[in-house]
Design a protein around this nucleic acid. Structure first.
Lengths: 253, 253
DNA sequence: CTTGACCCTGACGCGACGTCAGGCACTTCC
DNA sequence: GGAAGTGCCTGACGTCGCGTCAGGGTCAAG
């Protein structure tokens, strides 16, 4: 039932050095030592190592793993549920990357060009987590935000793919309008802006014309939104921004 | 069409420092510089960054990624196919971990104990890659090896799960025989060894009694096999080893 | 009682960045 | 047109998770 370092290392597929390291930083201290000072790992240590390895595989830092596992309010079952959830999320990310690579293979075969945005957004986790924190800070107390949260929570993977397809299509048509010289405050651009507004209303939250105009300003004011739209076509950020505001003005009139 | 570092970083979801780093090590050198020395990234640079990020996400080192991408014999389509394959493998690994966590959740609920082996083998990639290299070096020119390669290549995920279930079951019964004091060269142990041999023959390669006896010796001689079986129950490696050889002797008689 | 495999504890090295520090470039707003 | 704010530049040192010796004790087998 008890193991030496070498045995445990072989069992777990890690090196002896790794176990030494975990011992020194206090992440996994063997239950006992022999009289000669040899580390002795018991079953409970194997359990803990397994937890460590799952969290490590999910990208957690060793220190963070330590505080997670040492939290007395969280039992083994809770950890398993967490890990299960995180693993499913990781699989979804991999799926999205697979889809992106497939899409690009297809684009390469067909000769259809892709925007830098399409190529890279796979990695950006473009709405979730990181960005979500900030979004909540800025808009956390608005009804629109909570509405968006409520709806998107229920969206399936397929829903997200659909939304992305709609978005891509709309952005392509906007870029085309821009390329063909349609004025940003002209009818064609305003119609596209209106479509944009309705897309948001359907998928995320009720987006009034006023709010939409405000969104438009953000596309030129917030660098990341600017980078996003400029990544699709140069000048698109300002173009869409103007179109949104012109469309709002048209509606107010 | 061209981007500054900050823009590209925002697009790709990495930091400016990362792009600086990639520039210095020559992994991603921007196509141009402004007169003031600002980095200018063109579309081709965005493409390359995407490739870099996919490979990086798959766990490759930056230097290796560089030589992969700079190989003139490999074009973009080939990279995409490689990445696609690797991503699918990564998803399978995640799936196996999900299955393992689910199994453990179930075990926790039901109160069924698991062996250290069952808990940890998920991470070991126990047959593939790393170990496969060495296996090939040792047995690469045997017909059994090529037979095994041919069969396992066609196995689906479900096949592997079935195989694993069979293996688990057999090992459990072996451990029980050991625990109940059945002699390693007695009939019960030999029958289990015979079952083990037939399992190998069905699933991997034609395993003669002679070869099986040889396998048995390896269970005590090769540390990793020893660690594997000792992880299930102490003394099991030697027990199975003896049983294999006794079974072979019985058959020869 | 030697040999060989395994264990110990430092201690330095490394890959992939994070994080200042000090300074130039470019727009914007008064 | 100058001051402020933001972004970019190049060192240079810090960090995290180990890999890799170096020097030396331990232990079962022959």
């Amino acid at each position: 039932m008890s193991h030496t370092v070498g045995e445990l290392a072989a069992l777990a597929g890690v090196t002896v050095r790794t176990l030494h390291h975990y011992d020194r930083i206090g992440l996994l201290t063997p239950s006992g030592r022999t009289s000669a000072g040899y580390r002795v790992y018991e079953l409970s240590d194997v359990d803990r190592l397994q937890q460590v390895l799952v969290y490590r595989g999910l990208g957690f830092g060793l220190e963070e793993i330590g505080s997670l596992l040492d939290d007395p309010d969280v039992d083994a079952g809770e950890h398993l549920r967490r890990q299960h959830q995180l693993l499913l999320e990781q699989r979804d990310r991999t799926d999205r990357m697979v889809a992106a690579v497939e899409k690009e293979m297809e684009a390469l075969d067909m000769g259809t060009p892709m925007t830098p945005q399409e190529k890279l957004e796979v990695f950006g986790d473009w709405l979730p987590e990181e960005y979500a924190d900030e979004a909540e800070q800025r808009w956390g107390d608005t009804t629109e935000w909570s509405q968006s949260q409520a709806r998107t929570a229920a969206y399936s993977k397929q829903d997200w793919l659909d939304i992305k397809a709609e978005t891509d299509d709309l952005e392509r048509r906007l870029a085309a309008a821009l390329a063909e010289g349609a004025p940003a405050d002209g009818e064609r651009a305003m119609d596209l802006a209106e479509e944009h507004r309705q897309h948001i209303s359907r998928r995320f939250y009720d987006c009034s014309h006023e709010l939409h105009a405000c969104l438009g300003r953000m596309y030129t004011d917030d660098e990341r939104f600017t980078a996003y739209y400029e990544g699709i076509a140069p000048g698109l950020a300002a173009y869409l921004s103007t179109a949104c505001q012109a469309n709002a003005a048209r509606h107010a009139a």
